[in-house]
């Protein structure tokens, strides 16, 4: 399974369409296979990330806010999207591998005061 995470610094990027950096990780038998790739995109475009996800045969996208048009398009292309994720992308990847990542989740490490899941 290939996972794509839209990232900004160490966190999941807050907006899918404004993301300029993505991480692609390959997961095999519940473990990350090889070193995840971090790709710097030439610009910010939701359409380009959708195109890249299809080209790379991505099965799961983890992102922050995403417009319904992009969400529905990816769903139509049979790519699962877990959106509204807040927190460090490493945590997001860990939860995704454990199959416990849910849309809208606020991950540990996202807040210094708030409620954490």
């Amino acid at each position: 399974m290939k996972i794509l995470i839209t990232i900004h610094k160490n966190e999941v990027a807050s907006r899918f369409d404004l993301t300029s950096e993505i991480l692609i990780a390959e997961v095999d038998a519940g473990e990350i296979a090889g070193e995840p790739r971090i790709i710097l995109l030439p610009g910010t475009s939701g359409e380009d990330i959708c195109g890249l996800a299809i080209k790379e045969n991505i099965s799961l996208i983890i992102c922050g806010g995403i417009e319904d048009t992009h969400y529905q398009y990816l769903k139509w292309k049979k790519i699962k999207v877990v959106d509204g994720v807040i927190g460090p992308y490493e945590q997001a990847l860990k939860f995704a591998i454990a199959n416990t990542l849910k849309p809208g989740v606020i991950l540990p490490g996202a807040s210094i005061y708030g409620k954490q899941s």
């Binding site: 966190e11 404004l18 910010t44 922050g64 807040i86 606020i106 807040s111 210094i112 708030g114 409620k115």
Partner: peptide, 19 residues
């Protein structure tokens, strides 16, 4: 609001202000 205190504001409003 109770669950977002302490979180980076941009993650909550998800604006395009940075651009």
């Amino acid at each position: 609001r109770e669950e977002v205190v302490g979180i980076h504001g941009e993650n909550i409003i998800r604006s395009n202000l940075l651009t």
